[in-house]
Design a protein around this nucleic acid. Structure first.
Length: 273
DNA sequence: AGTGGCTCCTGAGCGC
DNA sequence: TGCGCTCAGGAGCCAC
Protein backbone atom coordinates (compact mmCIF):
# COMPACT_ATOMS: atom_id res chain seq x y z
CA UNK A 1 0.00 0.00 0.00
CA UNK A 2 1.70 3.16 -1.11
CA UNK A 3 2.44 5.38 1.88
CA UNK A 4 4.78 8.36 1.86
CA UNK A 5 8.02 6.47 1.02
CA UNK A 6 6.34 4.51 -1.77
CA UNK A 7 4.72 7.57 -3.37
CA UNK A 8 8.04 9.41 -3.09
CA UNK A 9 9.74 6.46 -4.82
CA UNK A 10 7.14 6.45 -7.60
CA UNK A 11 7.67 10.19 -8.00
CA UNK A 12 11.46 9.85 -8.24
CA UNK A 13 11.43 6.97 -10.71
CA UNK A 14 8.66 8.47 -12.81
CA UNK A 15 10.31 11.89 -12.94
CA UNK A 16 13.29 10.48 -14.83
CA UNK A 17 11.03 8.95 -17.45
CA UNK A 18 8.19 11.37 -18.14
CA UNK A 19 9.38 14.89 -17.35
CA UNK A 20 9.07 17.09 -20.45
CA UNK A 21 7.15 14.47 -22.40
CA UNK A 22 3.85 15.23 -24.10
CA UNK A 23 0.67 13.24 -23.53
CA UNK A 24 -0.40 12.35 -27.05
CA UNK A 25 -3.47 10.37 -26.10
CA UNK A 26 -5.36 8.78 -23.21
CA UNK A 27 -7.36 5.56 -23.16
CA UNK A 28 -9.68 4.94 -20.23
CA UNK A 29 -10.69 1.34 -19.52
CA UNK A 30 -12.51 1.86 -16.22
CA UNK A 31 -13.95 5.35 -16.00
CA UNK A 32 -14.56 5.64 -12.23
CA UNK A 33 -10.76 5.70 -11.81
CA UNK A 34 -10.62 9.18 -13.28
CA UNK A 35 -12.31 12.31 -12.01
CA UNK A 36 -12.48 15.16 -14.49
CA UNK A 37 -13.58 18.78 -14.26
CA UNK A 38 -17.37 19.03 -14.22
CA UNK A 39 -18.77 18.41 -17.68
CA UNK A 40 -15.34 17.91 -19.26
CA UNK A 41 -13.97 14.79 -20.89
CA UNK A 42 -10.88 13.62 -18.99
CA UNK A 43 -8.99 12.32 -22.01
CA UNK A 44 -9.72 15.45 -24.03
CA UNK A 45 -8.60 17.67 -21.20
CA UNK A 46 -5.26 15.93 -20.76
CA UNK A 47 -4.35 15.27 -24.40
CA UNK A 48 -1.54 17.35 -25.94
CA UNK A 49 -0.34 18.69 -22.61
CA UNK A 50 3.29 18.54 -21.57
CA UNK A 51 4.35 17.05 -18.23
CA UNK A 52 6.10 19.98 -16.59
CA UNK A 53 6.75 18.65 -13.13
CA UNK A 54 5.97 16.14 -10.43
CA UNK A 55 5.22 16.66 -6.78
CA UNK A 56 4.03 14.83 -3.71
CA UNK A 57 1.88 15.80 -0.76
CA UNK A 58 1.34 13.09 1.85
CA UNK A 59 0.32 10.00 -0.11
CA UNK A 60 -0.80 12.04 -3.12
CA UNK A 61 1.26 12.17 -6.29
CA UNK A 62 0.93 15.43 -8.23
CA UNK A 63 1.64 15.69 -11.94
CA UNK A 64 1.81 19.26 -13.23
CA UNK A 65 0.68 19.69 -16.83
CA UNK A 66 1.12 22.60 -19.21
CA UNK A 67 -1.78 25.00 -19.47
CA UNK A 68 -2.33 25.12 -15.71
CA UNK A 69 -3.75 21.69 -14.96
CA UNK A 70 -2.68 19.29 -12.22
CA UNK A 71 -3.34 15.56 -12.00
CA UNK A 72 -3.76 14.42 -8.41
CA UNK A 73 -3.31 10.69 -7.91
CA UNK A 74 -4.06 8.65 -4.80
CA UNK A 75 -3.02 5.00 -5.07
CA UNK A 76 -4.90 3.77 -2.00
CA UNK A 77 -4.14 0.05 -1.64
CA UNK A 78 -3.02 -1.38 -4.94
CA UNK A 79 -2.68 1.50 -7.40
CA UNK A 80 0.34 1.54 -9.71
CA UNK A 81 1.70 3.99 -12.24
CA UNK A 82 4.30 2.40 -14.47
CA UNK A 83 6.24 3.78 -17.41
CA UNK A 84 6.94 1.51 -20.38
CA UNK A 85 9.46 2.71 -22.98
CA UNK A 86 7.69 0.68 -25.65
CA UNK A 87 3.97 0.37 -26.23
CA UNK A 88 2.52 -2.67 -24.52
CA UNK A 89 -0.85 -4.23 -23.96
CA UNK A 90 -3.04 -3.39 -20.97
CA UNK A 91 -3.87 -6.19 -18.53
CA UNK A 92 -7.20 -6.78 -16.79
CA UNK A 93 -6.40 -4.30 -14.00
CA UNK A 94 -5.20 -1.45 -16.21
CA UNK A 95 -7.68 1.42 -15.94
CA UNK A 96 -5.93 4.11 -17.98
CA UNK A 97 -3.09 4.32 -20.49
CA UNK A 98 -1.37 7.65 -21.18
CA UNK A 99 0.44 7.57 -24.53
CA UNK A 100 3.48 9.84 -24.51
CA UNK A 101 5.59 11.12 -27.40
CA UNK A 102 7.99 8.38 -26.30
CA UNK A 103 6.60 5.35 -24.45
CA UNK A 104 3.48 5.15 -22.34
CA UNK A 105 2.33 5.30 -18.75
CA UNK A 106 -0.09 2.68 -17.39
CA UNK A 107 -2.31 3.30 -14.40
CA UNK A 108 -3.58 0.05 -12.86
CA UNK A 109 -5.29 -0.85 -9.61
CA UNK A 110 -6.47 -4.31 -8.59
CA UNK A 111 -8.86 -3.17 -5.87
CA UNK A 112 -10.09 -0.07 -7.69
CA UNK A 113 -9.84 2.23 -4.67
CA UNK A 114 -7.37 4.66 -6.24
CA UNK A 115 -8.32 7.77 -8.20
CA UNK A 116 -6.79 10.20 -10.69
CA UNK A 117 -8.34 13.61 -10.40
CA UNK A 118 -7.65 16.56 -12.63
CA UNK A 119 -7.99 20.11 -11.32
CA UNK A 120 -6.84 23.60 -12.32
CA UNK A 121 -3.39 24.09 -10.80
CA UNK A 122 -4.48 27.15 -8.81
CA UNK A 123 -7.30 25.14 -7.20
CA UNK A 124 -5.24 22.11 -6.25
CA UNK A 125 -4.09 23.31 -2.85
CA UNK A 126 -7.67 24.21 -1.94
CA UNK A 127 -9.02 20.78 -2.75
CA UNK A 128 -10.49 19.43 0.52
CA UNK A 129 -8.41 16.24 0.45
CA UNK A 130 -5.17 18.24 0.13
CA UNK A 131 -6.15 21.28 2.17
CA UNK A 132 -6.91 19.23 5.28
CA UNK A 133 -3.58 17.41 5.33
CA UNK A 134 -1.26 17.81 8.29
CA UNK A 135 2.43 18.68 7.99
CA UNK A 136 4.89 16.82 5.79
CA UNK A 137 6.90 14.75 8.27
CA UNK A 138 10.16 15.14 6.33
CA UNK A 139 9.88 18.91 5.88
CA UNK A 140 11.51 21.47 8.15
CA UNK A 141 8.07 22.56 9.38
CA UNK A 142 7.75 19.20 11.14
CA UNK A 143 9.55 19.64 14.43
CA UNK A 144 9.45 17.98 17.83
CA UNK A 145 7.40 20.91 19.14
CA UNK A 146 4.98 20.58 16.27
CA UNK A 147 4.47 16.87 16.94
CA UNK A 148 3.96 17.53 20.63
CA UNK A 149 1.30 20.14 19.89
CA UNK A 150 -0.44 17.89 17.37
CA UNK A 151 -0.65 15.00 19.82
CA UNK A 152 -1.46 16.99 22.94
CA UNK A 153 -4.48 18.49 21.23
CA UNK A 154 -6.08 15.09 20.86
CA UNK A 155 -7.79 12.60 23.13
CA UNK A 156 -7.30 9.39 21.21
CA UNK A 157 -5.03 6.39 20.89
CA UNK A 158 -1.63 7.27 19.47
CA UNK A 159 -2.03 4.74 16.65
CA UNK A 160 -5.23 6.44 15.48
CA UNK A 161 -3.68 9.88 15.73
CA UNK A 162 -0.69 8.91 13.59
CA UNK A 163 -2.91 7.32 10.93
CA UNK A 164 -4.99 10.50 10.74
CA UNK A 165 -3.82 12.41 7.65
CA UNK A 166 -5.04 15.65 9.21
CA UNK A 167 -2.47 15.18 11.99
CA UNK A 168 0.53 14.09 9.87
CA UNK A 169 0.44 13.57 6.11
CA UNK A 170 1.70 10.33 4.60
CA UNK A 171 1.82 7.74 7.38
CA UNK A 172 -0.13 4.50 6.88
CA UNK A 173 -0.44 1.23 8.75
CA UNK A 174 3.07 -0.04 7.99
CA UNK A 175 5.10 3.00 8.96
CA UNK A 176 2.95 3.81 12.00
CA UNK A 177 3.53 0.35 13.50
CA UNK A 178 7.24 0.57 12.71
CA UNK A 179 7.59 4.08 14.18
CA UNK A 180 5.77 3.06 17.39
CA UNK A 181 7.99 0.01 17.77
CA UNK A 182 11.13 2.06 17.34
CA UNK A 183 9.83 4.57 19.87
CA UNK A 184 8.97 1.81 22.36
CA UNK A 185 5.38 3.04 22.67
CA UNK A 186 2.30 0.80 22.83
CA UNK A 187 -0.10 1.69 20.00
CA UNK A 188 -3.15 1.89 22.27
CA UNK A 189 -1.65 4.55 24.55
CA UNK A 190 -3.67 7.74 24.83
CA UNK A 191 -1.78 10.61 23.20
CA UNK A 192 -2.33 12.72 26.30
CA UNK A 193 -0.42 10.18 28.41
CA UNK A 194 2.78 10.43 26.38
CA UNK A 195 5.78 11.79 28.26
CA UNK A 196 8.13 14.34 26.63
CA UNK A 197 10.84 11.67 26.33
CA UNK A 198 8.39 9.37 24.54
CA UNK A 199 7.28 12.06 22.10
CA UNK A 200 10.94 12.72 21.39
CA UNK A 201 11.52 9.04 20.59
CA UNK A 202 8.36 8.98 18.49
CA UNK A 203 9.50 12.00 16.49
CA UNK A 204 12.81 10.29 15.82
CA UNK A 205 11.06 7.00 14.99
CA UNK A 206 8.73 8.60 12.46
CA UNK A 207 11.46 10.54 10.67
CA UNK A 208 13.92 7.64 10.61
CA UNK A 209 11.46 5.03 9.44
CA UNK A 210 10.31 7.27 6.58
CA UNK A 211 13.84 8.20 5.55
CA UNK A 212 14.97 4.58 5.61
CA UNK A 213 11.82 3.61 3.72
CA UNK A 214 12.68 6.06 0.95
CA UNK A 215 16.31 4.91 0.87
CA UNK A 216 15.06 1.33 0.44
CA UNK A 217 12.76 2.59 -2.35
CA UNK A 218 9.64 1.64 -0.41
CA UNK A 219 8.03 -1.46 1.06
CA UNK A 220 6.75 -4.14 -1.32
CA UNK A 221 4.79 -6.17 1.18
CA UNK A 222 2.59 -7.43 -1.59
CA UNK A 223 1.53 -5.22 -4.45
CA UNK A 224 3.71 -2.12 -4.42
CA UNK A 225 5.91 -1.37 -7.45
CA UNK A 226 7.69 1.84 -8.47
CA UNK A 227 7.31 3.52 -11.86
CA UNK A 228 9.85 1.10 -13.35
CA UNK A 229 7.81 -1.86 -12.12
CA UNK A 230 10.43 -2.72 -9.50
CA UNK A 231 9.81 -3.75 -5.89
CA UNK A 232 11.12 -1.78 -2.92
CA UNK A 233 13.36 -3.37 -0.31
CA UNK A 234 12.10 -2.04 3.00
CA UNK A 235 10.03 -5.18 3.74
CA UNK A 236 13.38 -6.79 4.65
CA UNK A 237 13.81 -4.20 7.39
CA UNK A 238 10.30 -4.29 8.90
CA UNK A 239 10.43 -5.17 12.59
CA UNK A 240 6.73 -5.59 13.40
CA UNK A 241 4.39 -5.02 10.44
CA UNK A 242 3.20 -8.35 9.08
CA UNK A 243 5.12 -10.24 11.79
CA UNK A 244 2.32 -11.04 14.25
CA UNK A 245 2.97 -14.35 16.05
CA UNK A 246 6.68 -14.26 15.15
CA UNK A 247 9.53 -13.45 17.51
CA UNK A 248 10.45 -9.85 18.23
CA UNK A 249 13.75 -9.11 16.49
CA UNK A 250 14.86 -7.21 19.56
CA UNK A 251 13.86 -9.40 22.54
CA UNK A 252 12.45 -12.68 21.19
CA UNK A 253 8.99 -12.16 22.66
CA UNK A 254 6.12 -13.32 20.42
CA UNK A 255 4.70 -10.24 18.71
CA UNK A 256 1.05 -9.41 19.42
CA UNK A 257 -1.43 -8.88 16.58
CA UNK A 258 -4.52 -6.93 17.53
CA UNK A 259 -7.05 -4.51 16.06
CA UNK A 260 -6.33 -1.02 17.33
CA UNK A 261 -8.01 2.11 15.99
CA UNK A 262 -9.78 -0.16 13.52
CA UNK A 263 -6.53 -1.43 11.95
CA UNK A 264 -4.57 -4.62 12.30
CA UNK A 265 -1.69 -3.68 14.55
CA UNK A 266 1.45 -5.61 15.47
CA UNK A 267 3.57 -4.73 18.46
CA UNK A 268 5.85 -6.15 21.16
CA UNK A 269 4.44 -6.21 24.69
CA UNK A 270 7.95 -6.25 26.12
CA UNK A 271 9.71 -3.59 24.03
CA UNK A 272 6.76 -1.20 23.85
CA UNK A 273 5.32 0.40 26.98
C1' DA B 1 -14.52 15.70 19.48
C1' DG B 2 -14.23 10.83 19.41
C1' DT B 3 -15.70 6.18 18.07
C1' DG B 4 -17.52 2.62 15.43
C1' DG B 5 -19.59 0.93 11.35
C1' DC B 6 -20.24 0.91 6.47
C1' DT B 7 -18.68 1.43 1.66
C1' DC B 8 -15.77 0.86 -2.23
C1' DC B 9 -13.13 -3.89 -4.45
C1' DT B 10 -10.37 -8.11 -5.52
C1' DG B 11 -7.38 -11.79 -4.39
C1' DA B 12 -5.35 -14.69 -0.98
C1' DG B 13 -5.86 -18.08 2.33
C1' DC B 14 -8.39 -21.44 4.73
C1' DG B 15 -11.59 -25.32 5.97
C1' DC B 16 -14.04 -28.87 4.06
C1' DT C 1 -10.47 -28.94 -7.69
C1' DG C 2 -13.59 -25.86 -6.04
C1' DC C 3 -16.93 -23.68 -3.15
C1' DG C 4 -17.97 -20.40 0.40
C1' DC C 5 -16.28 -17.83 3.83
C1' DT C 6 -13.21 -14.24 6.06
C1' DC C 7 -9.80 -10.91 5.88
C1' DA C 8 -6.87 -7.01 4.21
C1' DG C 9 -7.23 -1.83 4.06
C1' DG C 10 -7.29 4.47 2.96
C1' DA C 11 -10.42 7.55 3.45
C1' DG C 12 -14.97 9.57 3.13
C1' DC C 13 -19.31 9.46 5.18
C1' DC C 14 -22.79 8.82 8.70
C1' DA C 15 -24.96 8.04 13.25
C1' DC C 16 -24.44 8.39 18.00
Amino acid sequence: MPELPEVESIKRTLEKKILGKKITGVKIFWSPAVVSLPGKDFAGLVKDRVIEGLGRRGKYLLIYLSGGLTMIIHFRMTGRLIYYPENCSADKHTHAVFSLDKGEMHYSDIRKFGRIQIVPAHDAAGLPSLAKLGPEPLDEEFTLDRLRNLLMGKKTQVKGALLDQKVIAGLGNIYVDEALFRAGILPDRQTSSLQPSEIKRLFKGIVEVLQEGIEARGTSFRDYRDADGNKGLFQETLRVYGRGGLECKNCGQILTRQKIAGRTTVFCRKCQK
